[in-house]
């Protein structure tokens, strides 16, 4: 039962973080791809660099933000799943934004004019571009999910690895490993992979249903 609770916390936090990140990052990555503005290349380079943002650094930053002595201390989000969601959101955002940018760039450049000349307004034409990029977009979101469900640094620093509350699969692995329970750690690792596999199968089925 405790194991189910751990899987549930992992899934809830990572799915919420990925979803929230996707809501912000998909439009953002799309916007960066279709608009020309000064410093665009710099932005893209920064985004790609943030792929390598260490999870513990994010954990540290968010701890500093959410700590009672920090600027957002009054929200009392430290050592809560919501706080972990915030940390993972920060981790997923650059991944999804950069991959959305790449996916949008990869869409045939005739899509937008074709939609426009058939009478689409700007918003509808943009949606068509997104629609043509949807495989890439889903890959972006799945990559973001993969980044957050497998990370331990932010989860343990912001969540505190509280049993039955903020303990996730990865923090449980870290704990069991530190206790020398390597076998349990490995089993948890396999469970994490199984969870990730289920999410990917679900996404794949979603795509297959709409060719």
């Amino acid at each position: 039962m405790e194991l189910l609770g751990i899987i549930w916390v992992s899934l809830r936090v990572s799915l919420a973080a990925t979803t929230l990140a996707a809501l912000a990052s998909v439009p953002l990555g799309f916007w960066i791809a279709v608009r020309e503005f000064p410093g665009k290349r710099v932005v893209v380079v920064i985004l790609n660099t943030l792929f390598s943002l260490p999870t513990v650094v994010v954990g540290l930053l968010v701890y500093g933000l959410l700590s009672h002595s920090g600027p957002l201390g009054s929200l009392k989000l430290l050592y809560t799943p919501a706080g972990m969601t915030l940390g993972q959101w920060i981790l997923a955002t650059p991944v999804i934004t950069a991959l959305t940018y790449a996916a949008t760039k990869g869409v045939d450049e005739r899509v937008r004019p074709t939609a426009l000349t058939l009478g689409a307004d700007g918003w509808q034409a943009g949606l068509m571009v997104l629609r043509e990029a949807r495989y890439g977009l889903l890959a972006a979101v799945v990559a973001g999910f993969g980044r957050v469900i497998s990370e331990v640094g932010a989860a343990i620093m912001i969540g505190g690895n509280i049993r039955g509350y903020t303990r996730t699969i990865t923090t449980a692995i870290a704990l069991e490993t530190s206790k020398g329970e390597f076998q349990i750690g490995l089993i948890l690792g396999v469970i994490l992979l199984a969870v990730a596999l289920s999410v990917n199968l679900f996404v794949h089925a979603f795509l297959r249903a709409r060719p």
Partner: peptide, 20 residues
């Protein structure tokens, strides 16, 4: 612009068909 575009339609030389 939208109103006028809806009265004129261009078929591209190598047309792009949307997925589906």
């Amino acid at each position: 612009w939208l109103e006028l575009r809806r009265r004129i339609t261009l078929v591209h030389q190598t047309p792009f068909l949307f997925r589906g």
